[in-house]
Amino acid sequence: MLDILFYSLIGVVIIQLFYYIFVFGNFSFTKSQKNNPKRIPISVIVCAKNEAENSRKFVPLLLEQNYPDFELVLIDDSSKDETLELFEQFEKQDSRVKLVKVKNNEAFWGNKKFALTLGIKAAKNEYLLFTDADCYPTSKEWIKEMSSNFTLKKTIVLGYGAYEKIPDSFLNKLIRFETMLTATQFFGWAKMGKPYMGVGRNLAYKREEFFRVNGFIDHMKLRSGDDDLFINQAAEKENTTVCFSKESFTYSMPKTTYKEWFIQKRRHVSTATYYKMFDRFQLGLFFLTQLLFLVLAILLLSINFQWMFVLPVVLIRYTFAWTSMGFAASKLNEKDVIYWFPVMEIALIFTQLNVFFTNIFSKPVHWK
């Protein structure tokens, strides 16, 4: 029986090495290529619901972008605070701002996808760049960097939506580690020709891609997934690329309590159950092998079974995983979390287990 467990550990490590070396490595070990700036007209789209405070801070940063031809489409999704009044002020002050007012619709009440659809239709330009109302670009070159990846064939661009650093906060490091791991995974698969998700905090695509798959119609009943479910449906090897230059990042404030973050993760995980079968399989396989590696390694080492063989297998796995994630952390400006890699991985595994079992017994709440 112990021999079977040992060989199972070897099999699990082989699968893990495949992910960290070949899948994640497609992103981690690749060199960033500088694209020539484009001058294509861009419509930046921001959907907001009760985001007056963030809009007051971040909309001016969007208008300061160093790009010759863009409009800013601000969508107010039936806000109850001062968001609409702020948006009306921005529209009066700057001719590049277009305001879309969304009133509650009985069929689509509280559905962000309905509001986004109206904004996409109202945009005057074919190339669309999305971020959230609580996000801001890391530089004035954000539009230029993201739009430079568009070509005649590449009509979907996946960007990195980061979270701000909070000093001396373990939760903040865990959130940023999970965000970095998720991005490394979907960037890696995209570069392998199997794109499966993107994040609405930093995402761009040509409007024709939206209408090609009939927008959000196939998952309109789900209140989440305006970013990842859309990309899972529309993205293909031929039409998708990634952008990870540090000038292209967006940042937002992360959750500050474990409970808030846990609720957010429940929404994300519930949405992933609607991915294509292969994407659900590869995500499930990665998590399962993470969990099995931890359980088998602890079990075999704790009973001192053939430790001279078990320990090298464990060290090999950690060496390649830590190295791969270290290169990814450097690209995504998250170096400080990688020093905690084993601790972060264990904490994340148990959080994901908790999310999985909690979602079985209750449904998470979506959009505001």
Rank of each mutant, 00 (worst) to 15 (best):
residue 148 S to V: 06
residue 155 T to C: 04
residue 158 L to G: 02
residue 133 A to G: 10
residue 190 A to D: 12
residue 113 K to E: 12
residue 122 A to K: 15
residue 172 N to V: 00
residue 94 D to Q: 02
residue 139 S to V: 06
residue 103 K to D: 14
residue 131 T to C: 13
residue 148 S to K: 08
residue 179 T to N: 13
residue 169 S to A: 10
residue 113 K to D: 10
residue 126 E to Q: 11
residue 118 L to P: 01
residue 171 L to K: 11
residue 107 A to Y: 14
residue 158 L to T: 09
residue 149 N to M: 13
residue 104 N to V: 09
residue 190 A to N: 11
residue 166 I to W: 00
residue 136 Y to R: 06
residue 115 A to E: 10
residue 192 M to Q: 14
residue 107 A to M: 14
residue 126 E to N: 11
residue 182 T to P: 00
residue 158 L to A: 07
residue 128 L to D: 03
residue 105 N to G: 08
residue 178 E to K: 10
residue 159 G to S: 04
residue 118 L to F: 05
residue 142 W to A: 11
residue 176 R to I: 01
residue 137 P to V: 06
residue 131 T to I: 09
residue 165 K to M: 04
residue 94 D to F: 04
residue 100 V to I: 13
residue 149 N to K: 15
residue 133 A to V: 12
residue 98 K to H: 13
residue 114 F to W: 15
residue 150 F to Q: 02
residue 143 I to E: 05
residue 164 E to P: 00
residue 181 L to Q: 10
residue 124 K to D: 11
residue 176 R to A: 01
residue 192 M to I: 15
residue 164 E to G: 02
residue 100 V to D: 01
residue 97 V to E: 07
residue 151 T to E: 02
residue 164 E to H: 03
residue 180 M to Y: 03
residue 148 S to L: 13
residue 112 K to Y: 10
residue 123 A to I: 00
residue 138 T to Q: 14
residue 134 D to R: 03
residue 119 G to I: 03
residue 187 F to T: 05
residue 170 F to H: 08
residue 171 L to S: 12
residue 153 K to F: 04
residue 151 T to N: 06
residue 117 T to P: 04
residue 118 L to I: 09
residue 96 R to H: 07
residue 117 T to R: 05
residue 125 N to C: 03
residue 98 K to N: 10
residue 100 V to L: 07
residue 187 F to A: 12
residue 134 D to Y: 07
residue 147 S to I: 04
residue 124 K to N: 10
residue 135 C to A: 14
residue 135 C to R: 07
residue 125 N to R: 04
residue 161 G to P: 00
residue 115 A to D: 10
residue 94 D to C: 01
residue 169 S to D: 08
residue 129 L to K: 07
residue 116 L to V: 11
residue 180 M to N: 07
residue 185 Q to D: 13
residue 160 Y to L: 04
residue 112 K to S: 12
residue 179 T to M: 10
residue 175 I to T: 00
residue 127 Y to G: 05
residue 145 E to W: 02
residue 147 S to G: 08
residue 172 N to C: 09
residue 186 F to G: 04
residue 187 F to M: 11
residue 117 T to K: 12
residue 94 D to A: 05
residue 165 K to P: 01
residue 184 T to M: 12
residue 139 S to G: 03
residue 181 L to T: 07
residue 109 W to V: 13
residue 157 V to E: 08
residue 105 N to P: 01
residue 145 E to V: 06
residue 190 A to G: 02
residue 145 E to G: 10
residue 174 L to V: 09
residue 94 D to N: 14
residue 126 E to I: 00
residue 179 T to C: 09
residue 131 T to R: 08
residue 168 D to G: 06
residue 180 M to L: 14
residue 119 G to S: 07
residue 170 F to S: 12
residue 140 K to N: 14
residue 131 T to N: 07
residue 98 K to G: 04
residue 175 I to L: 02
residue 146 M to R: 03
residue 114 F to D: 08
residue 108 F to H: 15
residue 148 S to C: 08
residue 191 K to A: 12
residue 94 D to V: 01
residue 179 T to H: 05
residue 136 Y to M: 05
residue 114 F to Q: 08
residue 119 G to H: 04
